[in-house]
Design a protein around this nucleic acid. Structure first.
Lengths: 130, 130
DNA sequence: ATAACTGTACTAATACAAATAGTACACCAC
DNA sequence: GTGGTGTACTATTTGTATTAGTACAGTTAT
Protein backbone atom coordinates (compact mmCIF):
# COMPACT_ATOMS: atom_id res chain seq x y z
CA UNK A 1 0.00 0.00 0.00
CA UNK A 2 1.47 3.30 -1.00
CA UNK A 3 1.02 6.35 1.15
CA UNK A 4 0.79 8.58 -1.87
CA UNK A 5 -2.55 10.28 -2.07
CA UNK A 6 -4.25 12.44 -4.66
CA UNK A 7 -7.46 14.41 -4.59
CA UNK A 8 -9.12 14.45 -7.98
CA UNK A 9 -11.31 17.35 -6.93
CA UNK A 10 -8.41 19.57 -6.00
CA UNK A 11 -7.47 22.43 -8.28
CA UNK A 12 -3.84 21.42 -8.02
CA UNK A 13 -2.83 19.22 -10.96
CA UNK A 14 -2.56 15.52 -10.14
CA UNK A 15 1.05 15.22 -11.28
CA UNK A 16 1.92 18.11 -8.98
CA UNK A 17 0.15 16.50 -6.06
CA UNK A 18 2.20 13.38 -6.62
CA UNK A 19 5.43 15.35 -6.79
CA UNK A 20 4.63 17.13 -3.54
CA UNK A 21 3.43 13.97 -1.87
CA UNK A 22 6.54 11.95 -2.68
CA UNK A 23 8.90 14.76 -1.78
CA UNK A 24 7.04 15.10 1.49
CA UNK A 25 7.34 11.40 2.30
CA UNK A 26 11.04 11.50 1.47
CA UNK A 27 11.67 14.61 3.52
CA UNK A 28 9.78 13.15 6.48
CA UNK A 29 11.74 9.93 6.30
CA UNK A 30 8.76 7.72 5.54
CA UNK A 31 10.55 6.79 2.34
CA UNK A 32 14.16 5.80 2.96
CA UNK A 33 17.12 6.56 0.68
CA UNK A 34 17.38 4.07 -2.19
CA UNK A 35 13.96 2.69 -1.38
CA UNK A 36 12.12 1.27 -4.34
CA UNK A 37 9.13 3.35 -5.41
CA UNK A 38 6.05 1.76 -6.95
CA UNK A 39 6.40 1.45 -10.70
CA UNK A 40 4.68 3.87 -13.01
CA UNK A 41 2.09 1.32 -14.01
CA UNK A 42 1.44 -0.04 -10.53
CA UNK A 43 1.00 3.36 -8.96
CA UNK A 44 -1.23 4.40 -11.81
CA UNK A 45 -3.42 1.37 -11.16
CA UNK A 46 -3.51 2.02 -7.41
CA UNK A 47 -4.47 5.64 -7.80
CA UNK A 48 -6.74 4.93 -10.75
CA UNK A 49 -5.09 7.52 -12.94
CA UNK A 50 -3.15 7.45 -16.17
CA UNK A 51 0.43 6.10 -16.23
CA UNK A 52 1.52 9.13 -18.20
CA UNK A 53 0.58 11.34 -15.28
CA UNK A 54 2.79 9.28 -12.94
CA UNK A 55 5.61 9.39 -15.45
CA UNK A 56 5.37 13.14 -15.60
CA UNK A 57 5.52 13.36 -11.82
CA UNK A 58 8.48 10.96 -11.56
CA UNK A 59 10.29 12.90 -14.24
CA UNK A 60 9.87 16.08 -12.29
CA UNK A 61 11.01 14.39 -9.07
CA UNK A 62 14.12 13.15 -10.82
CA UNK A 63 14.79 16.64 -12.15
CA UNK A 64 14.57 17.92 -8.58
CA UNK A 65 17.01 15.29 -7.36
CA UNK A 66 14.50 13.65 -5.06
CA UNK A 67 14.56 10.31 -6.85
CA UNK A 68 16.63 8.54 -9.49
CA UNK A 69 15.62 5.96 -12.05
CA UNK A 70 17.30 2.87 -13.44
CA UNK A 71 16.25 1.65 -16.84
CA UNK A 72 14.36 -1.58 -16.48
CA UNK A 73 14.68 -1.54 -12.69
CA UNK A 74 12.46 1.22 -11.45
CA UNK A 75 12.51 4.49 -9.55
CA UNK A 76 14.30 4.91 -6.24
CA UNK A 77 14.61 7.53 -3.54
CA UNK A 78 17.84 9.48 -3.88
CA UNK A 79 20.80 8.11 -1.91
CA UNK A 80 21.62 11.48 -0.43
CA UNK A 81 18.56 13.46 0.52
CA UNK A 82 20.27 16.04 2.70
CA UNK A 83 20.02 18.77 0.08
CA UNK A 84 16.36 18.00 -0.44
CA UNK A 85 15.80 18.21 3.30
CA UNK A 86 17.71 21.47 3.53
CA UNK A 87 15.73 22.96 0.70
CA UNK A 88 12.49 21.88 2.31
CA UNK A 89 13.48 23.36 5.64
CA UNK A 90 14.33 26.64 3.93
CA UNK A 91 11.02 26.59 2.09
CA UNK A 92 9.08 26.13 5.29
CA UNK A 93 10.88 28.97 7.05
CA UNK A 94 10.44 31.15 4.01
CA UNK A 95 6.71 30.51 3.89
CA UNK A 96 6.42 31.29 7.57
CA UNK A 97 8.28 34.56 7.18
CA UNK A 98 6.23 35.55 4.17
CA UNK A 99 3.08 34.86 6.11
CA UNK A 100 4.32 36.98 9.00
CA UNK A 101 5.21 39.82 6.67
CA UNK A 102 1.76 39.86 5.14
CA UNK A 103 0.21 39.91 8.57
CA UNK A 104 2.51 42.75 9.61
CA UNK A 105 1.62 44.79 6.56
CA UNK A 106 -2.00 44.48 7.52
CA UNK A 107 -1.23 45.72 11.00
CA UNK A 108 -1.21 42.57 13.07
CA UNK A 109 1.20 42.94 15.97
CA UNK A 110 4.24 40.76 16.43
CA UNK A 111 3.05 39.68 19.85
CA UNK A 112 -0.25 38.49 18.49
CA UNK A 113 1.49 36.41 15.87
CA UNK A 114 3.84 34.83 18.38
CA UNK A 115 1.06 34.09 20.82
CA UNK A 116 -1.04 32.58 18.09
CA UNK A 117 1.79 30.34 17.05
CA UNK A 118 2.54 29.30 20.63
CA UNK A 119 -1.10 28.43 21.12
CA UNK A 120 -1.43 26.33 18.04
CA UNK A 121 1.80 24.51 18.74
CA UNK A 122 0.71 23.77 22.28
CA UNK A 123 -2.51 22.26 20.99
CA UNK A 124 -0.60 20.24 18.50
CA UNK A 125 1.85 18.95 21.05
CA UNK A 126 -0.85 18.10 23.53
CA UNK A 127 -4.15 16.83 22.21
CA UNK A 128 -2.82 16.06 18.75
CA UNK A 129 -5.91 17.64 17.37
CA UNK A 130 -6.08 17.31 13.65
CA UNK B 1 -5.40 55.56 -12.47
CA UNK B 2 -6.44 52.38 -10.77
CA UNK B 3 -4.14 50.54 -8.41
CA UNK B 4 -5.50 47.21 -9.54
CA UNK B 5 -2.80 45.13 -11.14
CA UNK B 6 -2.79 41.82 -12.94
CA UNK B 7 0.02 39.58 -14.12
CA UNK B 8 -0.90 37.84 -17.36
CA UNK B 9 1.92 35.36 -16.86
CA UNK B 10 0.74 34.23 -13.46
CA UNK B 11 -0.88 30.84 -13.06
CA UNK B 12 -3.61 32.44 -11.02
CA UNK B 13 -6.65 33.27 -13.17
CA UNK B 14 -6.99 36.96 -14.03
CA UNK B 15 -10.45 37.31 -12.54
CA UNK B 16 -9.13 35.85 -9.29
CA UNK B 17 -6.23 38.28 -9.26
CA UNK B 18 -8.70 41.11 -9.60
CA UNK B 19 -10.86 39.77 -6.81
CA UNK B 20 -7.86 39.47 -4.49
CA UNK B 21 -6.48 42.83 -5.53
CA UNK B 22 -9.69 44.73 -4.91
CA UNK B 23 -10.36 42.98 -1.62
CA UNK B 24 -6.82 43.80 -0.59
CA UNK B 25 -7.22 47.48 -1.44
CA UNK B 26 -10.50 47.60 0.47
CA UNK B 27 -9.07 45.83 3.49
CA UNK B 28 -6.06 48.13 3.54
CA UNK B 29 -8.25 51.20 3.34
CA UNK B 30 -6.92 52.38 -0.01
CA UNK B 31 -10.46 52.06 -1.27
CA UNK B 32 -12.96 53.75 1.04
CA UNK B 33 -16.48 52.52 1.80
CA UNK B 34 -18.97 53.52 -0.90
CA UNK B 35 -16.14 54.61 -3.17
CA UNK B 36 -16.90 54.31 -6.84
CA UNK B 37 -14.97 51.55 -8.59
CA UNK B 38 -13.96 51.86 -12.24
CA UNK B 39 -16.68 50.57 -14.52
CA UNK B 40 -16.42 47.15 -16.08
CA UNK B 41 -15.57 48.61 -19.47
CA UNK B 42 -13.14 51.24 -18.23
CA UNK B 43 -11.16 48.83 -16.09
CA UNK B 44 -11.12 46.33 -18.92
CA UNK B 45 -9.64 48.97 -21.19
CA UNK B 46 -7.04 50.03 -18.61
CA UNK B 47 -5.90 46.48 -17.96
CA UNK B 48 -6.23 45.50 -21.60
CA UNK B 49 -8.38 42.50 -20.84
CA UNK B 50 -11.91 41.47 -21.67
CA UNK B 51 -14.86 43.17 -19.94
CA UNK B 52 -16.36 39.76 -19.22
CA UNK B 53 -13.38 38.94 -17.04
CA UNK B 54 -13.94 42.10 -14.99
CA UNK B 55 -17.59 41.34 -14.74
CA UNK B 56 -16.82 37.90 -13.40
CA UNK B 57 -14.50 39.38 -10.79
CA UNK B 58 -16.99 42.05 -9.73
CA UNK B 59 -19.70 39.42 -9.47
CA UNK B 60 -17.54 37.38 -7.14
CA UNK B 61 -16.67 40.44 -5.07
CA UNK B 62 -20.33 41.23 -4.69
CA UNK B 63 -21.03 37.66 -3.65
CA UNK B 64 -18.35 38.06 -0.97
CA UNK B 65 -19.89 41.28 0.28
CA UNK B 66 -16.84 43.36 -0.58
CA UNK B 67 -18.66 45.56 -3.07
CA UNK B 68 -22.22 46.28 -4.15
CA UNK B 69 -23.58 47.30 -7.51
CA UNK B 70 -26.31 49.68 -8.58
CA UNK B 71 -27.90 49.16 -11.97
CA UNK B 72 -26.84 51.90 -14.30
CA UNK B 73 -24.69 53.54 -11.63
CA UNK B 74 -21.71 51.32 -11.15
CA UNK B 75 -19.93 49.24 -8.53
CA UNK B 76 -19.07 50.56 -5.10
CA UNK B 77 -17.10 49.46 -2.09
CA UNK B 78 -19.38 48.06 0.61
CA UNK B 79 -20.60 50.59 3.17
CA UNK B 80 -19.63 48.36 6.07
CA UNK B 81 -16.37 46.57 5.52
CA UNK B 82 -15.79 45.49 9.10
CA UNK B 83 -16.77 41.89 8.42
CA UNK B 84 -14.48 41.79 5.40
CA UNK B 85 -11.65 43.14 7.50
CA UNK B 86 -12.32 40.67 10.27
CA UNK B 87 -12.39 37.80 7.83
CA UNK B 88 -9.12 38.95 6.31
CA UNK B 89 -7.47 39.24 9.67
CA UNK B 90 -8.62 35.74 10.57
CA UNK B 91 -7.33 34.43 7.24
CA UNK B 92 -3.90 35.90 7.83
CA UNK B 93 -3.62 34.47 11.31
CA UNK B 94 -4.88 31.14 10.07
CA UNK B 95 -2.30 31.03 7.31
CA UNK B 96 0.42 31.89 9.78
CA UNK B 97 -0.66 29.14 12.16
CA UNK B 98 -0.90 26.62 9.38
CA UNK B 99 2.58 27.53 8.27
CA UNK B 100 3.88 27.13 11.80
CA UNK B 101 2.19 23.76 12.14
CA UNK B 102 3.78 22.46 8.98
CA UNK B 103 7.16 23.64 10.16
CA UNK B 104 6.60 21.99 13.53
CA UNK B 105 5.64 18.70 11.94
CA UNK B 106 8.89 18.77 10.08
CA UNK B 107 10.76 19.30 13.29
CA UNK B 108 11.56 22.99 13.23
CA UNK B 109 11.71 24.34 16.77
CA UNK B 110 9.37 26.99 18.07
CA UNK B 111 12.28 29.24 18.98
CA UNK B 112 13.67 29.13 15.50
CA UNK B 113 10.31 30.11 14.06
CA UNK B 114 9.90 33.01 16.45
CA UNK B 115 13.42 34.25 15.89
CA UNK B 116 12.98 34.04 12.15
CA UNK B 117 9.80 36.06 12.35
CA UNK B 118 11.36 38.66 14.61
CA UNK B 119 14.26 39.02 12.20
CA UNK B 120 12.15 39.49 9.14
CA UNK B 121 9.86 41.95 10.89
CA UNK B 122 12.82 43.96 12.07
CA UNK B 123 14.12 44.20 8.52
CA UNK B 124 10.72 45.23 7.32
CA UNK B 125 10.31 47.90 9.98
CA UNK B 126 13.77 49.30 9.40
CA UNK B 127 15.01 49.27 5.87
CA UNK B 128 11.63 48.84 4.24
CA UNK B 129 13.30 46.53 1.77
CA UNK B 130 11.33 45.71 -1.36
C1' DA C 1 -36.44 62.67 -25.42
C1' DT C 2 -31.82 61.70 -26.47
C1' DA C 3 -27.18 60.37 -25.86
C1' DA C 4 -23.84 58.27 -23.24
C1' DC C 5 -22.91 56.04 -19.68
C1' DT C 6 -23.71 52.05 -16.39
C1' DG C 7 -24.63 46.83 -14.99
C1' DT C 8 -26.30 42.35 -16.49
C1' DA C 9 -27.10 38.31 -19.19
C1' DC C 10 -26.46 35.59 -22.70
C1' DT C 11 -24.04 32.53 -26.58
C1' DA C 12 -20.14 31.23 -29.27
C1' DA C 13 -15.43 30.79 -30.17
C1' DT C 14 -10.62 30.47 -28.73
C1' DA C 15 -6.67 29.13 -26.10
C1' DC C 16 -4.23 26.49 -23.09
C1' DA C 17 -2.91 22.94 -19.90
C1' DA C 18 -4.00 18.65 -17.69
C1' DA C 19 -5.17 14.24 -18.28
C1' DT C 20 -6.21 10.19 -20.97
C1' DA C 21 -5.54 6.63 -24.54
C1' DG C 22 -2.68 3.92 -27.14
C1' DT C 23 1.56 2.35 -29.05
C1' DA C 24 6.33 1.33 -29.30
C1' DC C 25 11.01 0.35 -27.82
C1' DA C 26 14.92 -0.68 -24.79
C1' DC C 27 16.57 -2.56 -20.45
C1' DC C 28 16.72 -5.88 -16.55
C1' DA C 29 15.64 -10.06 -13.76
C1' DC C 30 14.03 -14.67 -13.69
C1' DG D 1 11.75 -15.96 -23.74
C1' DT D 2 8.53 -13.91 -20.50
C1' DG D 3 7.25 -10.36 -17.68
C1' DG D 4 8.07 -6.30 -15.43
C1' DT D 5 10.46 -2.02 -15.75
C1' DG D 6 11.47 3.03 -17.63
C1' DT D 7 11.02 6.03 -21.61
C1' DA D 8 9.32 8.38 -25.63
C1' DC D 9 6.10 9.45 -28.68
C1' DT D 10 1.41 11.06 -30.93
C1' DA D 11 -3.38 11.87 -30.77
C1' DT D 12 -7.44 12.84 -28.31
C1' DT D 13 -10.36 14.33 -24.70
C1' DT D 14 -11.56 17.34 -21.11
C1' DG D 15 -12.03 21.35 -18.23
C1' DT D 16 -11.51 26.06 -17.47
C1' DA D 17 -10.11 30.67 -18.37
C1' DT D 18 -10.48 34.04 -21.59
C1' DT D 19 -12.06 36.38 -25.45
C1' DA D 20 -15.57 38.04 -28.73
C1' DG D 21 -19.86 39.76 -29.76
C1' DT D 22 -24.51 41.01 -28.90
C1' DA D 23 -28.49 42.56 -26.46
C1' DC D 24 -31.23 44.85 -23.00
C1' DA D 25 -32.52 47.65 -18.99
C1' DG D 26 -31.47 51.28 -15.63
C1' DT D 27 -29.20 55.93 -14.68
C1' DT D 28 -27.35 60.43 -15.61
C1' DA D 29 -26.85 64.64 -17.92
C1' DT D 30 -28.20 67.51 -21.53
Amino acid sequence: MSRIMVDLRSRKPIFEQIVDSVRDLVVRGLLKPDEHLPSVRVLAAELAINPNTIQKAYGELERQGVIYSLAGRGNFVASDISSVKDAHRAELMNALKKSALEAAEYGIAEDEMINGIKDVLREHKGGNIK
